[in-house]
Design a protein around this nucleic acid. Sequence first.
DNA 1: TAGTGGTCTAGACCACTAA
DNA 2: TAGTGGTCTAGACCACTAC
Lengths: 237, 237
Amino acid sequence: MHAKYISIYKEILSKIEGGEISSGTFLPSESELMKKYDVSRDTIRKSLDLLAKNGFIEKVKGKGSLVLDIHKLDFPVSNLVSFKELAEKMDNRVQTILVDLELISPDKQIMKDLNISKEENVWKVIRIREIDKEKIILDKDYIVEGIVPDLTKDICMDSIYEYVEEGLGLQISFAKKEVTVQNATKEDRKYLDLDDSDMVVVVKNYVYLSNAILFQYTESRHRPDKFRFVDFARRGY
Amino acid sequence: MHAKYISIYKEILSKIEGGEISSGTFLPSESELMKKYDVSRDTIRKSLDLLAKNGFIEKVKGKGSLVLDIHKLDFPVSNLVSFKELAEKMDNRVQTILVDLELISPDKQIMKDLNISKEENVWKVIRIREIDKEKIILDKDYIVEGIVPDLTKDICMDSIYEYVEEGLGLQISFAKKEVTVQNATKEDRKYLDLDDSDMVVVVKNYVYLSNAILFQYTESRHRPDKFRFVDFARRGY
DNA sequence: TAGTGGTCTAGACCACTAA
DNA sequence: TAGTGGTCTAGACCACTAC
């Protein structure tokens, strides 16, 4: 809502996604955009840099900003989005089942993952994500009580991120992610519809606030045949 | 080599990676860095933005730029690096075996992947990547002949990217990537040491030049137990 | 040659943090 | 209050592209 360059980014993006600007064509030049939005060139450039970073345009020196036709991310590992935000793009084909919500004293592994002492308590949240009536993802969340003192069933069924950001006024900023493939555990087999497959894709998330404090460790365990993510990568720095 | 902000980025990065600046401490303020490098604030900010984007620092308003202790990427899906560049960080524990190098007429799938007509020929390169004497990754590359006219055994054994960028003077710019888990094919079982596992992690790459022309399609097929990547993700735009 | 994006500068005002 | 990073402006010169 605040910065001009973000508003302009969003406006151009909506025109690209809405098909108003077709892929393969060039955006108006930076000087034209300056006039159009009545801002300085630096502000326009920030907007275009965002579009380029996220894979919507490619800037070509001497020519202009070419609109790309890369499709949107299905499971964005490189972004940091909540399941609720993801689900909203999937037309209600998803459902969440809350299996467990309790305040626990952390074991050694969780203490290490969250970098806390044994005096600090931790919220443990286990949720199953159903897609088209099949249990596809097992989400195991561990959240530091000192940062999120209260957690209710309703919050867990809706969106923990939304609560943390809007309810508590904290800013979720960045995460370290790790993706591996492992043999399924008994817990996986108990909660997921694994069919014949005996492996799961494990996405580990260490999530930090904007003051660089670690507040959440999450493990998302996916049925492999339903796991897929598309990413956009740039070469160089 | 050219831009000041990239030199400054590299200099600060080497100090962080070399331990000269420890994680958990703050970088000098932007105004101090301005004086130190004798550049404008905008230039310093570009350097710091790069460090933040790549997960080395977190900027905290009113405080400063905090150095993070996130370890380096193992298998960077979100970056766009060649296997040779990756291997250089692994102390020669890796080896490449060239299985196939030929110029073919594309089948329907390849025509679609590379978005070309059947008149254009395509280089097909099949390579096995050994890590610690085990055959872990099967790389299948398809490269448009019109862009890369010559391809030799030596180039494929060394680095195709290096040849394209330095030999041909082209600039590899961005890629669309897709990661899935699939059942192993006969070809996978033939070329890889799959042990008991019957699945592979498939990383598909559509690689573009800086003029937004698609020139390469690559499929990297990994043994699942050896597949792992760590990524850094920021929330927001 | 004219137009494009890439880089750099100098200065301004703001919001946030800490003492 | 002083210092920090966040945003925005106006102007400059460069390298590249197209004609």
